[in-house]
């Protein structure tokens, strides 16, 4: 499942994930944002692994916010932007006949 959110005046955040019962699995955050240091991405994605599915934006925002390593700079995006993309991904209904492999 796939969700995107373009931060106004900022960058694009993309979330790909799977739902396994009431849990999120294989969460991948990507986009054209800037993140320092770059390995902080692992912590952001990992925070959502196994998180409850179907939750609100506020819940995901808190989960991600708590996982941002100290000293991390997120430029052009935010935990909020990731949370919006996570919610959108779960609203994603795959269209028939598309060749999207994700």
């Amino acid at each position: 499942m796939h969700g995107e959110y373009k931060v106004p005046k900022g960058k694009l955040v993309v979330v790909d994930l799977e739902r396994d019962g009431d849990r999120l699995r294989n969460v991948q955050i990507s986009g054209d944002f800037f993140l320092y240091p770059d390995d902080a991405l692992d912590a952001l994605s990992a925070s959502l692994e196994g998180a409850v599915a179907g939750a609100s934006e506020a819940v995901y925002r808190e989960i991600v916010t708590a996982a941002v390593p100290p000293g991390t700079e997120m430029v052009g995006f935010s935990p909020e932007a990731i949370a919006i993309a996570v919610v959108r991904a779960q609203q994603d209904e795959p269209e028939e006949g598309t060749d999207r492999a994700d």
């Binding site: 993309v14 790909d16 990507s30 986009g31 054209d32 944002f33 993140l35 770059d38």
Partner: peptide, 9 residues
């Protein structure tokens, strides 16, 4: 690609 972009996307 940028550092954080997905190939497929």
């Amino acid at each position: 690609l940028g550092r954080f972009q997905s190939v497929q996307n």
